[in-house]
Amino acid sequence: MLNTDYRDNVLTVFLSGEIDQHTGQTLRREIDSCTEALRPHLLCLDFSNVKFMDSSGIGLIMGRFRQMSLLGGRLKITNLPDNIKRIVMLSGVQTLGVLV
């Protein structure tokens, strides 16, 4: 179950553990279910407690960027640990303007 905070039209999702193709599928379903129900103006993915992420996590970020665009909202990703920052920078998703 997702750890979330919703206030002032901002939905913050506190991600944790390891993000790979397996866990990413569940996260995608749960996050999309939340954003479709709440229609936040801003979805904020907080990576503070993420210990591992492979490129499936990049797919998750890109997919949520698309999802939020379709809903008329925006996406931000915050508190990237150093070991995850590297794969994010390699992917180029920072050019979408989502990094905080």
């Binding site: 492979d54 490129s55 499936s56 797919g59 997919g63 698309r66 794969i87 992917s91």
Partner: peptide, 14 residues
């Protein structure tokens, strides 16, 4: 599919 980033080999090489 659209949830895949297409970065697997790029990450391995990097």
């Amino acid at each position: 599919g659209e949830e895949r980033a297409g970065l697997g080999f790029a990450v391995m090489e990097s």
